[in-house]
């Protein structure tokens, strides 16, 4: 596979940026410094980064309530993201969106979404616009295993199939819809097989292997740009943390075993990348460590920026509704 050293380092940088960002969000939410719901994606970094690394800057994505990783992978500025999550005026949405609604249209990030399955028709429409305007952009649509049981998933795949739209549906199967195991509420073992019902290609992908995700997304993007229509990629991964930070306060009992979590932590996507590139001799330990250290510093700086930023004025609640 044609992945150069620069791209691998960039992937590694973004995975670390996500890991550090999410860990920070978890800690600051637990400490009571950040308001609202925080859904973190620790353990799922390879899917976000593998997909977005295969996209062009002009391509678009839609994201989910667990969207920080997707946004960072598409180039989102961690300082403006952090400020948004702090509810500050300097945030991406001037404090009106928060964690679940960050968007950056200049980067093709059509937004995270608080409604499970809400972004799937939007991604489909974004692809429809690209087809109508003949602009050649591809839209990657992130959603979870839970959303694959929403009607919008099925309606959108049918639409995209009949119109051969340039869209890639990325089902990030992290094993749980909130607290319910996917297998308990899903008719199929592999969500990828649902592609058959819409006569489009569907693949099960190791969502913890950034190179595999990158390869599949590149192929799907090439198909989309060639006018051959949508692809469904089911990236199997795992949510190391809970559904929402602080869930212990309202969830009674355990919904998974320590062993299961430990098994997946042993398959850490960041360590898997390190192992692959160190063994092949592509990168050296100190090159990786330098990048990891930079990612930590960027996230620290983002927290400082957010802390020092002003809160919005109450009168700003009346702005930004209409053009």
């Amino acid at each position: 596979m044609d992945i150069g050293k620069e791209l691998v380092l960039e992937m590694y940088r973004k995975m670390h940026r996500i890991r550090n960002f999410e860990q920070k969000i978890k800690d600051l939410t637990t400490a009571g410094e950040i308001p609202g719901f925080a859904h973190v994606s620790i353990g799922e970094e390879a899917t976000a980064v593998g997909v977005c690394s295969a996209l062009r800057p002009t391509d678009r994505i839609t994201s989910t309530h667990r969207g920080h990783g997707h946004l960072i992978a598409k180039g989102g500025d961690v300082a403006r993201m952090m400020a948004e999550i702090y509810g500050k005026r300097t945030g991406y949405c001037k404090g009106k969106g928060g964690s679940m609604h960050i968007a950056d249209f200049s980067l093709g990030i059509l937004g995270a979404n608080g409604i499970v399955g809400g972004g799937i028709p939007i991604a489909t429409g974004s692809a429809l616009a690209a087809k109508l305007a003949k602009t050649g952009e591809v839209t990657a649509c992130f959603f979870g295993d839970g959303a694959a049981n929403e009607g919008t998933f099925h309606e959108s795949l049918n639409l995209a199939s009949i119109w051969k739209l340039p869209v890639i549906y990325i089902c990030e199967n992290n094993g749980f819809g909130e607290f319910t195991p996917t297998a308990a509420v899903t008719s199929v073992k592999d969500i990828a097989v649902r592609a058959k019902g819409y006569d489009i290609p569907g693949y099960v992908v190791d969502g913890n292997d950034v190179f595999e995700v990158y390869r599949h997304t590149s192929e799907a993007a090439a198909r989309a740009r060639a006018g051959e229509g949508p692809t469904l990629l089911e990236c199997k991964t795992y949510r190391w943390e809970g559904h929402v930070v602080g869930e212990g306060a309202f969830i009674s009992g355990k919904y998974r075993t320590e062993e299961e979590v430990a098994r997946w932590k042993a398959r850490c996507p960041i360590i898997a990348l390190e192992k692959a590139v160190l063994e092949s001799g592509m990168l050296k330990r100190d090159e990786l460590d330098r990048v990891a250290q930079q990612a930590r510093e960027e996230v620290e700086a983002a927290v400082q920026f957010a802390r020092q930023s002003p809160l919005p004025e109450p009168s700003e609640a009346n702005e930004d509704l209409w053009i």
């Binding site: 059509l110 616009a129 690209a130 109508l132 919008t152 959108s156 049918n158």
Partner: peptide, 28 residues
């Protein structure tokens, strides 16, 4: 057919597609 598009019976799907298409620069 490029500017008058028959949709399937998928109100959530095509109302949402109109939203996405508008975000991507068209005027549905």
């Amino acid at each position: 057919p490029e500017r008058i598009l028959d949709m399937p019976l998928s109100e959530a799907g095509f109302v949402g597609a109109a939203v996405g298409a508008a975000m991507a620069g068209t005027r549905p």
